[in-house]
Amino acid sequence: MKDTPMRRLAGILLLMGFLVALMVAFGALSPNPAVGAYPEGEHLDANYNAWVGEKAALWGTVVETDPLVIEDEYGAGKSVHVELTDTSIDVPLGDRIAVYGVVEPDHTIRVLNAYPIPATNYLYMYAVSFLAGLWVLTRLVRTWRLDTQTWALEPRPNPRSWTQHLRESLTESQGSPTESRGSPRESRSSSTESRDTPTEGDDA
Rank of each mutant, 00 (worst) to 15 (best):
V128H: 00
R160S: 12
W135C: 06
W151G: 02
P118H: 04
P118S: 03
E168L: 00
N158D: 15
S129C: 06
M125Q: 06
R167N: 10
S161C: 09
V141L: 14
N158H: 14
T163E: 12
L137I: 13
P159A: 10
T138R: 12
E154Q: 14
A152D: 15
Q164F: 13
T150Y: 02
Q149K: 13
V128N: 01
T120L: 11
P159Y: 07
F130P: 03
E154Y: 05
P155G: 05
S161P: 04
G133I: 06
A132G: 07
G133Q: 11
W144V: 04
L123D: 03
R139Y: 13
A127K: 02
W135M: 11
N121Y: 02
R160T: 07
Y124H: 00
W135G: 08
L131H: 05
L153F: 15
H165D: 08
P157V: 03
R142H: 07
R145L: 10
D147R: 04
T148H: 12
L137K: 03
N158S: 11
A119Y: 08
Y122C: 03
A119I: 05
R145H: 05
V128K: 01
W151H: 12
T120Q: 15
T143D: 13
T163D: 11
A119G: 06
A132E: 02
N121P: 00
T163M: 10
T138I: 14
T148S: 08
T150R: 08
Q164I: 09
P157Q: 05
W144Y: 14
N121E: 02
R139E: 13
A132V: 08
T150I: 06
S161F: 12
Y124R: 00
L166M: 13
T163G: 08
L166V: 10
A119K: 08
P118I: 02
P155S: 06
P118G: 01
P118R: 00
V136N: 09
E154F: 09
L134T: 15
D147Q: 06
L146N: 06
S129P: 00
E168P: 00
V141G: 01
